[in-house]
Computed example of a mutant assay.
Amino acid sequence: MFRMPPEWAPHERTWMAWPGPNPTFDGAGLAEARAAWAAVARTVRRFEPVTMVTGPGQADGARAQLGPDIDLVERELDDAWMRDIGPTFLTDGTELAAVDWTFNGWGAQEWARWEHDAKIGAIVCDLAGARIQPSGLVNEGGAIHVDGEGTVLLTETVQLGPERNPGWTRERVEQEIHTQLGTTRAIWLPRGLTGDYGQFGTRGHVDIVAAFVRPGVVVAHSQPDPAHPDHELCRRIVDLLRSERDAGGRPLEVVEVPAPTVLRTDGEWADYSYINHYLCNGGVVLCSFDDPRDEEAAEIFRGLFPDREVVQVDARTIFAGGGGIHCITQQQPVVG
């Protein structure tokens, strides 16, 4: 049976996509985005191989910023969020497979383009030598998080949202998710962070709200400042998670990670979150925001992953585009 391994399982490599000219990174923002993506890629490369997919004719420019030891592949792209446009890798222990979700620009948002990104999942599958499992569910990798032992976190405003899957019931979504990922229990969060419903938001991805760090243990975003609308929302989500049990019947242990102190960015409510981290072989790549709480978050993750090196990378430019470090990376598990 194929299943999605947890992120802390050994990786063969990490896949990323290079920012190109598009509505998300306009003008000077493109250079800033490329510098931010390059910083993440070089950090991940310290721990495991990285393959960067670039648009046609962009490999040489990417090479100049990435250095010599990151693999480059040129393919048509619209955007650069490999977690969402790429496949979700699976294994049965002897073979590599991957789910190729249906992608529609995070709910057919008016600024989004996805003619090419809708095909990247299958392209990466082919490049990785993975067997493709197509899915009719409109879904993205940032909208799921698994513990590797049968439990998956979902968000009602994503998989059940009319912009993605009109007419799908909760039962139908769960059946498809479980069939594809090898899970048996879904834990639904009611929605995502407030800022994730802005112009470039995903309408509620779970990977800035909560994530498994080992079976039975979840890190959850908390907003200590009552002036922010996420203050009450996060309290409700933490209470919900603490009332849940995983597929093995264990009550969830919830580790709260306080949000950065900044409340607004560009006049909108900030959704800066340390939950949007990326685990790679021997490392934790953690968002930083030049914020007083950066070190507090790093200490929490050092305690959770004492055998891994925690490295912080400034994620403010990435969040300005609508995501974080987890959103631009996608793990390919080791098979066997």
Rank of each mutant, 00 (worst) to 15 (best):
F2R: 12
F2W: 11
W8F: 12
W15S: 10
A17F: 05
A17R: 13
W18P: 08
P21V: 04
P21D: 11
P23L: 01
P23H: 07
T24F: 05
F25Q: 13
G27D: 10
L30E: 10
A31S: 13
R34D: 05
W37M: 05
A38D: 07
A39M: 02
R42A: 01
R42P: 03
R42I: 01
T43Q: 14
R45P: 05
P49V: 01
P49A: 00
P49R: 01
M52P: 15
V53I: 15
V53F: 14
T54Q: 11
G55M: 05
G55A: 13
A59P: 14
D60C: 07
G61S: 05
G61Y: 03
G61A: 07
A62N: 08
R63T: 04
A64G: 04
Q65F: 02
G67T: 00
D71R: 13
D71Q: 13
M82Y: 09
D84H: 00
D84W: 00
P87Y: 08
P87W: 07
F89V: 07
D100Y: 00
G105W: 01
Q109T: 08
W114D: 11
K119E: 14
G121P: 05
I123D: 15
I132S: 13
S135A: 09
V138H: 14
N139I: 00
G141H: 07
G142K: 03
G142C: 05
G142Y: 03
V146W: 03
G148V: 01
G150A: 02
V152D: 02
T155K: 12
E156L: 02
E156Q: 14
L160K: 13
E163S: 15
G167C: 08
T169H: 06
E171V: 08
V173R: 12
V173H: 12
E174M: 01
E174I: 00
E176G: 06
T183S: 10
R185Y: 00
A186S: 15
P190E: 12
T194C: 12
Y197C: 09
G198I: 00
G201F: 07
T202P: 09
R203V: 03
R203K: 13
H205R: 09
D207N: 11
A210R: 05
R214E: 06
G216N: 05
Q223D: 14
D225Y: 03
A227L: 12
A227H: 14
D230E: 10
H231R: 09
R236H: 14
V238W: 00
D246G: 02
G248D: 11
G248H: 08
G249C: 01
G249N: 04
P251A: 11
L252C: 03
V255T: 02
E256M: 07
E256N: 06
A259V: 06
V262W: 08
L263Y: 06
R264D: 12
W269H: 12
A270Y: 04
D271C: 15
Y272H: 15
S273Q: 11
Y274T: 03
N276S: 09
Y278P: 14
Y278M: 13
L279T: 15
C280Y: 07
G283C: 07
V284H: 11
D290R: 10
D290P: 04
E299W: 02
R302P: 06
F305D: 13
P306F: 06
E309A: 12
Q312I: 05
V313E: 05
R316W: 04
T317V: 06
G321L: 03
G323D: 09
I325Q: 13
I328W: 06
T329V: 03
P333H: 06
G336T: 06
